[in-house]
């Protein structure tokens, strides 16, 4: 990965709407939002507000569910990823994703981290180097370095989740989407993931979906508040949490619904 950091936003969302083909219900309604370099944006909102769908539109993961229709544009470095001649596989390599529960594969720790690289047919030396680096960046290296060939399934939940982060990082994406990555973890494991996120946002654009306002407060630079498929408000974390403009935002942040 080379080249100077781009001038504008790495990822920009432009009038994005998502409609369910089955129920004709609008899941996302006309959302526009930019994700600048070196930022961690927390997408918060009550259950069912569409935040998970939103984050999945950002790397065309919605296509894996046949019943959604996406309109509007999502631009990665200025390229609309929904253009017909865009290769979704390349999109997902540049925009990685981590899920609510750890999704390690039934392979060794090393092979899990190397998964994306093997697909790219990288050289063994490059894979060794990149896997090690990814494990270090994900904050897992010290715990697994003596047993890289052990089964990844033997790791604890928190370790598995960090391994998933390492796997996403190994292909050096510019953007990493995190869909409630700590919702299945205990507080100690959550803390380690949050530390990892804070380190990562220096060189990867992070988009964190969370229903947990205090987590957003701890790690994010910016908060976007979604409600009923609409982007209600977006702003710096401090502004949003302390001086919300919209009454809905204030109600959510103060815990009156959620």
């Amino acid at each position: 990965m080379s080249g100077a950091a781009p001038e504008g936003p790495v990822l920009s969302v432009d009038h994005l709407s998502v409609v369910s083909r089955d129920s004709k219900k609008k899941i996302l309604n006309d959302i526009s939002l930019d994700f600048p370099p070196r930022s961690l944006t927390a997408v918060v909102g009550p259950s069912g507000c569409g935040k998970t769908t939103f984050v999945r539109t950002l790397n065309r993961m919605t296509e894996l569910t046949h019943s959604l229709r996406v309109s509007g544009a999502v631009r990665y470095l200025g390229q609309d990823i929904y253009q017909s001649n865009v290769n979704p596989v390349l999109v997902r390599r540049r925009i990685g994703m981590v899920f609510q529960r750890p999704t390690v594969f039934p392979m060794s720790v090393f092979e899990n981290a190397a998964f994306g690289l093997r697909i790219l047919h990288e050289s063994d030396a490059e894979i060794d180097r990149a896997v090690t680096e990814a494990l270090v960046r994900a904050g897992l290296w010290d715990e697994v370095k003596t047993d890289l060939n052990g089964s990844a399934l033997a790791l604890s939940g928190g370790q598995q989740q960090r391994l998933c982060i390492a796997r996403a990082l190994a292909v050096k994406p510019r953007v990493l989407l995190l869909d409630e990555p700590t919702s299945a973890l205990d507080p100690a494991a959550t803390q380690r993931i949050e530390q990892t996120m804070l380190r990562l946002k220096e060189d990867v654009v992070l988009v964190l979906v969370t229903h947990n306002v205090s987590q957003a407060a701890r790690v994010s630079d910016r908060v976007a508040f979604l409600h009923s498929g609409r982007l209600v408000e977006v702003g710096s974390t401090a502004d949003m949490l302390e001086r919300p403009k919209d009454p809905l935002t204030e109600q959510f942040i103060t815990g009156r619904f959620g």
């Binding site: 039934p106 392979m107 060794s108 090393f110 092979e111 894979i127 090690t132 990844a152």
Partner: peptide, 8 residues
């Protein structure tokens, strides 16, 4: 780093 597919 040893690459081995033993766990696979």
């Amino acid at each position: 780093v040893q690459r081995k597919r033993s766990g696979q």
